[in-house]
């Protein structure tokens, strides 16, 4: 199963990034093989709708879950329609967040934080 984690850096020792739409990197990890890859979040520099585009990226990567800090309502709508479960990550490394996820210790997010309506 593939899961996505928002990351501040390019390896699994990096800290979790709390932003979703404008996170710099996504780490896509395979929970069985423990392999992972890093993708640049191209939406981070979008003028508006970053969360929506980022959501689509996660869906295109066929991730079944996303670990992040906050998701706005727009991203939530996209992720939900693509059947991606969203979990609130902790302020520890990507690696540790994956472990917590596997143990079922991360809290699932069902409601969105306030939208911040893109950048003008």
């Amino acid at each position: 199963m593939k899961i996505a984690i928002t990351s501040t850096g390019t390896d699994i020792k990096s800290l979790l990034e709390k932003k979703f739409g404008r996170a710099e990197f996504f780490i896509i990890a395979d929970t069985e093989s423990n392999e992972y890859k890093v993708i640049d979040n191209k939406a981070a520099m979008e003028a508006g709708g970053a969360g929506i585009q980022a959501g689509q990226t996660i869906i295109n990567e066929s991730a079944i879950a996303l670990i992040t800090g906050n998701v706005g309502p727009n991203a939530l709508r996209v992720l939900t329609s693509g059947d991606v479960a969203i979990y609130r990550g902790q302020s520890v490394s990507i690696e540790e967040n994956i472990t917590l996820y596997k143990k079922g210790e991360l809290q699932q997010i069902n409601t969105a934080g306030e939208a911040h309506f893109g950048m003008k």
């Binding site: 404008r22 981070a44 520099m45 003028a47 893109g118 950048m119 003008k120």
Partner: peptide, 10 residues
């Protein structure tokens, strides 16, 4: 110009 949010990020 528009896009000051992006410039801040940059």
């Amino acid at each position: 110009a528009e896009g000051s949010g992006k410039l801040v990020t940059e």
